[in-house]
C-alpha cells in the first residue's frame, strides 16, 4: 500500500432489497484513494457511482466489505497508520465521523431556505469549531474567495443564483477542512458559466492540497480530475491517470494549451474505450 493512502475500500458490496427484488449495485469492489488526488468516478447510469460515493463517505453502510480511513482522529487518539474502519459504525457514529473528516457537495445544494448563505456555512462549521468569531472570519474569507461578497452572504438562498448557491454549498463543504471532500455531480444543475466557476473552485482547492472524490457524467468536469475511475455494473472497469497533464484549465488563458488538449484527448479516448 502506498503511504499516501487516505481512504481504502476492500471487497465493497452494496445490495438494495425491495420486498422481493434484490439489486446488486456494488460487487466486491476494492479501491484506494490517495491524499491530494482529485479522484473522479464515472460510469453509465445505474453503474453504482453514487452508491460508491455514499459508501466511501460514510453516508451509507455497505452490505459487505470494509472502508478504512487513514487519518488522525484526535477524539480517539487514533494515529493515521492504524486506520479507522467505518463500515460497521452506527448512524450516530457515522455522523460524528462525517462531521470531522468528510465534506459534501451535492448536485442539489440542499441549502436551508430559512437561513442566510453565511448561516448555512456557519451551521456546518459550528459542528466542529466552537469559536464563533474565528469561524465567521474563516467563512467570510472563503465566501469571498468564491466571489460571494459580504452583502450576498447575508441573503437567503432563494435570492441567489444557482451558481452562487452551489458555490456557497462548496464553502459549506470545506469549512471544516475535511480530509476528503465528496462531490456528487456538483455541476449537474448548472449552466456552462457556473459550471466553469464551480469547477475552478474545486481545482483551486485541490491544488492547495484538498483531496476530492467526485462523481460526474460530464467530460468537462471529469477533465479536472487527476485520476479517473470508470465503473460499470458495480465493478471498476478501468482507471485513467491524468496527473501528468495537470495544469491550468481555462482554455482561453491557458498558456499551455497543448497540455489541456492532450489531457482532453486522453480522457476522451479512455472514455470511448469504456463505452461511454
Amino acid at each position: 500500500m502506498r503511504n499516501d493512502v487516505i481512504l481504502k475500500a476492500k471487497d465493497l458490496s452494496k445490495t438494495f432489497s425491495n420486498e422481493s427484488v434484490q439489486q446488486h449495485v456494488l460487487k466486491n469492489l476494492s479501491l484506494e484513494v490517495y491524499k491530494g488526488d482529485f479522484t473522479v468516478v464515472m460510469g453509465n447510469s445505474g453503474s453504482g457511482k453514487s452508491t460508491l460515493l455514499y459508501a466511501l463517505s460514510g453516508m451509507d453502510r455497505p452490505t459487505l466489505g470494509t472502508i478504512t480511513y487513514y487519518v488522525d482522529d484526535d477524539s480517539k487518539g487514533t494515529k493515521k497508520e492504524e486506520g479507522i474502519e467505518i463500515s460497521k459504525f452506527s448512524n450516530d457514529k457515522l455522523a460524528m465521523f462525517r462531521r470531522n473528516h468528510a465534506g459534501f457537495v451535492f448536485q442539489q445544494n440542499y441549502l436551508n431556505d430559512s437561513m442566510s448563505a453565511l448561516d448555512n456555512v456557519m451551521v456546518s462549521g459550528l459542528l466542529r469549531n466552537k469559536d464563533r468569531k474565528a469561524l465567521a472570519e474563516k467563512a467570510k474569507k472563503l465566501l469571498e474567495r468564491v466571489e460571494i461578497n459580504e452583502r450576498d452572504s447575508k441573503k437567503f438562498p432563494a435570492q441567489l443564483s444557482g451558481g452562487q448557491q452551489q458555490r456557497v454549498a462548496v464553502v459549506r463543504g470545506v469549512i471544516n477542512s475535511p480530509e476528503v471532500l465528496f462531490a456528487d455531480e456538483p455541476t449537474g444543475a448548472l449552466n456552462s458559466q457556473n459550471t466553469t466557476n464551480v469547477l475552478d473552485i474545486l481545482s483551486e482547492l485541490n491544488s492547495e492540497g484538498q483531496s476530492i472524490v467526485m462523481v460526474t457524467h460530464t467530460l468537462k468536469a471529469a477533465e479536472r480530475g487527476s485520476r479517473i475511475i470508470y465503473l460499470a455494473d458495480g465493478v471498476i472497469s478501468d482507471e485513467c491517470d491524468l496527473g501528468e497533464y495537470a495544469g491550468d484549465y481555462q482554455d482561453d488563458e491557458n498558456p499551455d494549451k497543448e497540455k489541456a488538449r492532450k489531457r482532453h484527448e486522453k480522457l476522451k479516448d479512455f472514455l470511448q474505450a469504456m463505452g461511454w
Binding site: 455522523a95 460524528m96 459534501f104
Partner: peptide
C-alpha cells in the same frame, strides 16, 4: 426530509 438529510450528511446526528 431532504434538508434533514443534508444536515445529517454534514455530520449532525439524529439527536442533534
Amino acid at each position: 426530509r431532504k434538508e434533514a438529510g443534508m444536515l445529517k450528511a454534514l455530520g449532525l446526528s439524529g439527536k442533534d
